[in-house]
């Protein structure tokens, strides 16, 4: 099937960037592209109505979620259960009366192109520091814009768990950005 190898040549880099932007891991992004190509061979339902790129991207989106699901499910289940006792997880940020320990500061994306690049680099570093499962669910919600209901279905977690994980992820990221960007 020469077709598929042509597709790899024509669309491989595009699909790789698409996957990398969401998975943020080169090996996983390569795997996602490979799985997409193999799935394209297996269920050759391409009808020529949409472009091949659009069709392949549709497959890729599912492959990305498959990898994310695997990543979350490989985590010990106890990690997810302790999220229910969410109140202690915020002790780093609030005192016992619920007041901020360090008050959040003003944070803006810079207009200047060079500064913006540095800002996004700081953000990327902060995402790398986040526990893997928090980074994954954050990516699904805020980057891939999958709705909460579907995230819970894919990851087999409760809505409350999802809210708590997203809250933790965002709290950690904004704090990290304050340290690495505002004062850095």
């Amino acid at each position: 099937m020469n077709n598929i190898n042509n597709w790899l040549n024509e669309h491989g880099d595009y699909l790789y960037r698409f996957a990398l932007a969401r998975l943020r891991d080169t090996h996983q992004a390569e795997d996602a592209v490979q799985e997409t190509m193999l799935a394209a061979i297996k269920n050759n339902s391409f009808d020529g109505e949409s472009s091949a790129r659009t069709w392949l991207t549709g497959i890729l989106k599912h492959k990305i979620i498959d990898l994310q699901r695997k990543q979350i499910r490989e985590q010990p289940i106890s990690d997810l259960i302790d999220l229910d006792a969410s109140d202690t997880s915020m002790d780093d940020f609030f005192d016992s009366t619920g007041h901020w320990l360090d008050k959040p500061q003003t944070l803006e994306i810079p207009d200047n192109a060079l500064e913006q690049k540095q800002f996004l680099k700081a953000l990327s570093t902060c995402m790398d520091k986040l526990p893997a499962k928090l980074a994954t669910i954050f990516s699904m919600r805020d980057i891939q814009e999958i709705d909460n209901e579907n995230i819970c279905k894919e990851l087999d977690i409760t809505t409350t768990n999802a809210w708590v994980m997203l809250y933790r992820a965002r709290m950690g990221l904004r704090k990290c950005l304050e340290i690495n960007w505002i004062t850095g």
């Binding site: 932007a21 959040p104 003003t106 944070l107 800002f119 995402m127 904004r174």
Partner: peptide, 23 residues
């Protein structure tokens, strides 16, 4: 500030994604 930070964060990660896609 926190409220604003989360909205900035959401915009920023989307921009980060677009940068990677467009590079």
């Amino acid at each position: 500030h926190f409220n604003r930070q989360l909205r900035v964060l959401r915009n920023a990660v989307k921009r980060m994604m677009q940068h990677t896609e467009g590079d």
